[in-house]
Amino acid sequence: MAQAPTAQRDTNPAGSVDLSLDAAQLTAALVDFPSVSGAEKPLADAIERALRELPRLTVDRYGENVVARTHFGRDTRIVLAGHIDTVPIADNVPSRVCGDLIYGCGTSDMKSGVAVQLRLAAAAGAAASPQSAHDLTFVFYDCEEIESARNGLGHVARAHPDWLVGDFGVLLEPTDAVLEGGCQGTLRARVTVAGQRAHSARSWLGSNAIHRAAPILNRLAEYRPREVEVEGLLYREGLNAVGISGGVAGNVIPDECAVVVNFRFAPDRTEEQAAQHVRAVFEGFDVRIVDSAPAARPGLEQPEAARFAARFDVPPRAKYGWTDVARLAALGVPSVNYGPGDPNLAHTRDEHASITKIHETERMLAEWLGLK
């Protein structure tokens, strides 16, 4: 990118997506197009308009989800998917460029990956471009960063599963340009303890639910998570409190306290096994599962996955975190995670992405797909 060492941009809340920009410039433009979960419509509109200009793509829309497909008559179809939403902005929009780094909300998770997708779609869909070695499906979906029930890829899978048919998939989630297999499952549970209300001046007449929640926190502090190898990749589990609530008023002994826990589990467990484990850890307490999404096994022994993995000099590693490779796997599309962003920077105020790795990811995928 021809940028000064440090450059600031204006936001682009109702503009267009210019597919002639290179992948790094396009990343910056997408960051300047705010799309916090639930507010993705302007960006989805712009992506749809840009893709409909490409003569060799069929473009479909469902809600704020856009799916574009080639129809070259190839024997294999590759699905490339990415979410267009971000976590809430933390004074990190508009984007800025400093040397090799682009800073801003979503640079890592995952507008750099979406920019690469759009560049590949532009290459595949242009009339004068060479046809890909595979047929391609590009999926841009909403609401990945919030509860599973609102996930746009899930909505498309239920309403139009035929749009997502494929032999292999690449989810361009942040992996720092390293191949990552599978993903952890995620489960949230509400662990509740009851008490008895009383006036705080006569506390002995009641039972303080917040005090009675101490054993829940003790069990979490003493918990030792597993490390388990699945198909050659090492997954680490985690069980943590992510919220606590209780209290009625400043002069009332509370009669309920709830601790919300998040269990990140390895892909050798099913969702039900994960739920059973959480209930066992908190035996004696009221445990209610409030959200759950399955893990995905690496699946790197699949032929297309193995061919893709062979292109990397660095061995694949396990994906820490939940991604939609699990949803694609459930649809019969074995998939991997591969994107330019650094997963350790996702959701941070200082989020940024490497321009070098953005271009590296685009080049790797374009060569594999036969778009260069």
Rank of each mutant, 00 (worst) to 15 (best):
V260L: 10
T11M: 01
A249N: 04
A149M: 01
D91T: 12
A44N: 06
Q117D: 07
A295Y: 03
R9G: 12
L205E: 15
S292N: 14
G82L: 13
R288P: 00
G250P: 08
R119K: 10
R119S: 09
R219P: 03
T186N: 01
R264H: 06
R307Q: 15
R288H: 07
T270E: 14
L153Y: 08
Y103E: 10
G113A: 13
H359N: 09
A329I: 07
E362P: 05
L120V: 04
L153W: 02
A295D: 08
A310C: 13
R150N: 15
G154K: 15
N65R: 10
S37M: 13
D268T: 15
N12A: 14
I47L: 00
V336W: 03
R224W: 07
A310T: 13
G113M: 14
G284I: 00
C143R: 15
V287I: 01
I78G: 08
E367H: 02
G238D: 15
V139I: 05
A122I: 04
R74S: 03
F285N: 02
A90P: 03
L187K: 10
V260Q: 09
R327D: 12
D100L: 06
A293C: 11
R264K: 06
P161G: 03
A115L: 04
A329D: 11
I244F: 11
E227N: 12
V287T: 02
W368E: 05
G181L: 04
L345P: 09
P88K: 04
V287C: 00
H83C: 13
